[in-house]
Amino acid sequence: MHDHPTEDEYSWPTCVTPRCGRQLWVAEAGRWACRPCEDATLQRIRELPALFAQLDTTAALMRGARRPGGATSGSKTPPIPPRLEVLALVGPGGIAARLQAIEDSWRQVLGWTVAPWRGSPKQAVPHLVEFLGNNLLWACSSYESVGQDIDDLRKLHTECAALASGEKRPGRVQIGACPTVVGDGWCGTQLTASTGSHRVHCGGCGARWETLGEWRELRAAQERVLAEAAGVAA
């Protein structure tokens, strides 16, 4: 007799990264995050210093910000505020603080001393990036919570890249109620879609529509529900 699960009970391990979840390769046995997620995250980490520098310069030269030789100290008209979202990223609670939180959690698990304060965000970011890049392989292999850190780094990189390029955040529009059958009725949760993506996800029942064909099926199902509701009302 043995305690190993039967073939029917066995569940193949998957990547813990929230937006991935794919099955790990045999060569990735024992890892928490897959190699493609590791490679993509390492690339994002390496790009953060340049993005930080670009945003820091943008913040300093923002339209309406004070410049040497600009408005005098006695001016009664305050300068136009710079973009707060840029300042939030390059300031004390922005990029550096978010990277520091990940480094501190890794150091705690490793049993290492928390790194001393490294000065301004501009001074700290290169050191934080170096640490995370050097220890990413360990985290993907041995740190159970690495999936959330990978997702946080992805979000941070996306924010920085969008602001650095001047890209506007895509808006969301309502596209009707969810027609998924739930129990004796239908879900009914209001669905929204982003102008920057073709994916739709219902926050109520979890249903998803991702391809053009699925979008058409969604619309047809919504029309059926409306027709049935109109028939009952009549």
Rank of each mutant, 00 (worst) to 15 (best):
5 P>G: 08
6 T>W: 12
7 E>L: 12
7 E>Y: 15
9 E>R: 15
9 E>V: 09
10 Y>Q: 09
14 T>S: 12
14 T>K: 15
14 T>D: 08
16 V>H: 03
19 R>I: 05
20 C>I: 04
22 R>E: 06
23 Q>F: 12
26 V>F: 04
26 V>C: 01
26 V>E: 00
28 E>T: 08
31 R>L: 11
34 C>L: 06
34 C>H: 09
34 C>K: 03
34 C>W: 09
35 R>N: 14
35 R>E: 08
38 E>C: 11
41 T>L: 13
43 Q>I: 11
47 E>T: 11
49 P>E: 11
50 A>E: 05
51 L>Q: 03
52 F>I: 02
52 F>V: 04
52 F>G: 03
55 L>R: 02
56 D>E: 12
57 T>Q: 13
61 L>H: 13
63 R>K: 14
63 R>F: 14
63 R>M: 15
65 A>H: 08
66 R>T: 02
66 R>S: 04
75 S>A: 09
78 P>E: 08
82 P>W: 07
82 P>D: 03
84 L>R: 15
88 A>N: 04
89 L>V: 07
89 L>S: 02
90 V>T: 02
92 P>G: 00
94 G>L: 02
94 G>I: 02
94 G>S: 01
96 A>E: 01
97 A>W: 00
107 R>P: 00
109 V>G: 04
110 L>G: 01
111 G>E: 00
113 T>E: 03
114 V>S: 08
114 V>W: 09
114 V>I: 09
115 A>D: 01
116 P>C: 07
116 P>L: 05
116 P>F: 11
117 W>R: 05
117 W>N: 07
118 R>Q: 02
119 G>T: 05
120 S>W: 02
129 V>D: 00
130 E>S: 04
130 E>N: 08
131 F>Q: 02
132 L>F: 13
133 G>H: 06
133 G>S: 05
134 N>C: 03
134 N>T: 07
138 W>F: 13
139 A>G: 13
142 S>N: 08
143 Y>Q: 06
143 Y>H: 09
146 V>P: 12
146 V>W: 15
146 V>F: 13
147 G>K: 11
148 Q>H: 14
148 Q>E: 14
149 D>S: 07
150 I>M: 05
151 D>V: 03
154 R>C: 04
155 K>N: 08
157 H>P: 01
158 T>Y: 07
159 E>I: 01
160 C>V: 09
163 L>I: 11
167 E>A: 13
167 E>S: 15
169 R>Y: 14
171 G>I: 06
171 G>W: 10
172 R>C: 03
180 T>H: 13
180 T>L: 13
180 T>N: 12
180 T>D: 07
182 V>N: 10
185 G>I: 15
185 G>M: 11
186 W>L: 01
186 W>H: 03
189 T>E: 07
189 T>Y: 07
190 Q>S: 00
191 L>A: 03
193 A>L: 04
194 S>Y: 08
194 S>A: 03
195 T>C: 01
196 G>C: 05
197 S>T: 00
200 V>S: 03
202 C>H: 04
203 G>D: 07
204 G>Q: 10
207 A>K: 05
208 R>N: 06
208 R>I: 06
209 W>L: 01
210 E>Y: 08
213 G>E: 12
216 R>Q: 15
217 E>D: 11
221 A>D: 03
221 A>F: 08
225 V>N: 04
227 A>W: 15
230 A>I: 09
232 V>K: 13
233 A>W: 13
